[in-house]
Amino acid sequence: MKTPISSMLLVALGSFIGSFGAVFLKLGSEKLRGGLRNILNFQLATGVALYLFSSAFFIFAIRNGELSVLYPLVSLGSVWTLAWSRLIFKEPLTRYKFVGLFLILVGVSFLGIGNS
């Protein structure tokens, strides 16, 4: 079975949207310092909504295509998130983060091959 380009684009787009979900969850999580009653806020609701939206992309994409190709593409979300962590939250990018992320991407690729 070949993986159509459309499925790959859907997954890449889904991972991109999902990474913004992570950004909004992080933004909203700050409000929890005031206690659990602040759990309902705009940022957290947006984060959850973006996650649900991104999973719709994955569900449509996974219908046709190989897991060995699509699995690693889902994890691309971590790469986008690394960029937003630097740009928005000014987190330092250390060698550990690059090596750790690289290993995780390799591992997910292996799992994708093992599952297909």
Binding site: T94, Y96, K97, G100, L101, G107, F110, L111, G114
Partner: peptide
């Protein structure tokens, strides 16, 4: 073997992330 390798490398990646500075 692919799954086993994948699991091992992912866990290794998480360990590396955990050891990083900050």
């Amino acid at each position: 073997p692919f799954k086993l390798c994948g699991i091992t490398v992912i866990v290794l990646g998480v360990v590396v992330l955990g050891r990083g500075g900050g």
